[in-house]
Computed example of a mutant assay.
Amino acid sequence: MLFQQLSQSPVFRGISPDEMENLLIDSQYQIKKFSKGDMLAFREDKCENLMIVLKGSVKGEMLDPSGKSIKIEDIMAPYPIASAFLFGQRNQFPVNVTANDEVEVFYLTKNSVIELFQKNKVFLTNYLNSISNRSQFLANKLMFLNFKTIKGKLANYLLKLSAPDKTEITLPKSQAEMAQFFGVTRPSFARSLKEMEQEGLIEINRREIKILNKQQLIRLLQQ
């Protein structure tokens, strides 16, 4: 069961369960269980293991200067946690990691990861692709958080969903989830969305958004 789960993770993609079992035979690993709300790691804790979610999901959060919690992302099974921070001079968790529900996590020691790099080219390539993707995601998230207004964040988000030339999109999250993602209250998020509709930028029908004035959305990014 374990090797079947691991073989579905992006870092082990292309390695069969049987190969996984042979690959990990001399490796140091363990499985830990967490309950909803448990902290798996605090920001700036040292990252010493490759962690892969086997069951459930976790969320990465950070605090802004006012102490408000901003959710960076949810990580579902079978994806790795903070794989880009296992190496480097400051190999520390960039965010707090909390269990969203009942969670099981696979821990593989850093030394074992290095040994697997030497043993298996597929794992090495997958891992490099994984940390490159994470770096790109975090860069985009940082740019997103730099927008000072909720409307600016919304404009950026809607433009990305509509790229390259769509005018009708569906929000993948509820307003409550979107507000948490933006690091604002739900009423503030809903008010900004409504104002953008009143200003003729968008048309809203529940989660369905029709973009009416793309150029004005772009101008919001420059404010």
Rank of each mutant, 00 (worst) to 15 (best):
L2R: 00
L2G: 00
Q8A: 06
P10G: 03
V11L: 03
F34S: 00
F34M: 04
K36C: 08
G37H: 06
R43D: 09
D45H: 04
K46M: 04
C47W: 00
N49R: 01
G56S: 05
G60R: 08
E61W: 09
M62E: 09
K68V: 13
I70G: 04
I72R: 13
A77D: 06
I81E: 01
A84Q: 13
Q89S: 12
Q89R: 05
F93Y: 15
P94N: 01
P94F: 08
Y107S: 01
I114G: 02
F117D: 01
Q118K: 15
N120Q: 14
N120V: 12
Y127Q: 00
S130K: 10
I131K: 03
Q136E: 03
Q136R: 14
F137R: 15
M143L: 15
N146D: 12
N156V: 07
N156D: 11
A163Q: 08
P164I: 12
I169S: 06
E177N: 06
A179F: 11
A190R: 09
A190N: 10
R191A: 11
I204M: 09
N205L: 04
R206M: 03
E208R: 13
I211F: 09
I211R: 06
N213S: 13
K214N: 08
K214F: 11
Q215E: 12
Q215C: 05
